[in-house]
């Protein structure tokens, strides 16, 4: 890794100021994605702005209708949270399926969502639940946030501070792990609300996406076997050495059904 400056602000405005004043500087959360990038010399920021001292970014709270998770909350904490387990067990389950214990105790929800890896798990939960991304500047709806391969609506100097999830009637996540990386080869999050069902898919394409025909079918009748017949178009899906596009398309259907089954448990 190339040498760079290191800052550890304790206030969000200070962090934002550092980020905007030092060109190309980078926020450091759990470092599970960023540090390997730096070690491989693929990125060369002049400064790192570490978010770990910003206490207000940690923790989980709920008000009955929503659960808000601070951006710096590690995956392991979400997975083990009694509140999340009680209100949105599918989300706790999703967090428990990320990486390995070391990654789960360092990696954060904010880092994962900001990074928007096409095979990451959280984007499926965030989009599937129709969550709201709260930043240092504004609030962004999940449907407007994820813009494709590693791209989000975040602007330069914008810091995710928390994610607010509406509590669904039921929700489930099913993940088919990529054999080597154990990221999602295909992961599907299904959430049922009073006003309808949302189905979000990660891993299958260049970015997380929803599946309207499945949402329509499940909204009509939340019977997962109903989606077994809904096929996904292979256009735009990823083909790589682990899975061809038509196999990924097939897995979307299988995993959506399993996510629905998980939601019913």
């Amino acid at each position: 890794m190339k040498p760079c400056a290191y800052h550890q602000p304790v206030q969000i405005p200070d962090a934002a100021k550092l980020l905007t004043s030092i060109e190309d500087s980078k926020l450091l959360a759990g470092g599970m994605t960023l540090i390997p990038t730096l070690k491989q010399r693929l990125a060369n920021p002049p400064a790192l702005v570490d978010l770990s001292r910003l206490g207000s970014l940690k923790g989980i709270s709920g008000d009955g209708a929503t659960i808000t998770i601070g951006a710096m909350t590690p995956h392991a904490v979400v997975a083990a949270s009694k509140l999340v387990q009680a209100k949105i067990p599918g989300l706790a389950a999703l967090a428990s399926m990320i990486g390995d214990p070391a990654v789960r105790s360092r990696g954060t929800i904010g880092g994962s969502v900001a990074n928007n890896d096409p095979a990451a798990d959280y984007p499926a939960g965030v989009l599937g639940l129709g969550a709201t991304i709260i930043t240092s500047m504004r609030e962004i709806a999940a449907d407007e946030f994820f813009l494709g391969l590693f791209e989000t609506a975040l602007e330069a100097g914008e810091i995710i501070t928390a994610i607010r999830f509406p509590v669904p009637l039921r929700a489930g996540y099913a993940k088919f792990k990529a054999p080597a990386s154990r990221y999602a080869l295909v992961g599907v999050f299904v959430a049922k609300f009073a006003d309808g069902v949302r189905v979000a898919v990660t891993g299958a394409g260049p970015g997380v996406f929803r599946v309207p025909p499945m949402e329509a079918a499940l909204s009509l009748n939340f019977d997962p076997s109903a989606i077994a017949a809904i096929k996904i178009d292979t256009d735009g899906l990823t083909s790589d050495i682990h899975a061809e596009a038509d196999y990924r398309a097939h897995l979307v259907t299988v995993m959506a059904k399993r996510a629905g089954d998980a939601a019913l448990v």
Partner: peptide
């Protein structure tokens, strides 16, 4: 796995080689 033609190793790390 290599890419025929370019000769790039596609399974070049533990993320892709299981």
């Amino acid at each position: 796995v290599y890419d025929e033609g370019s000769g790039q190793l596609l399974s070049g790390s533990l993320m892709d080689y299981c």
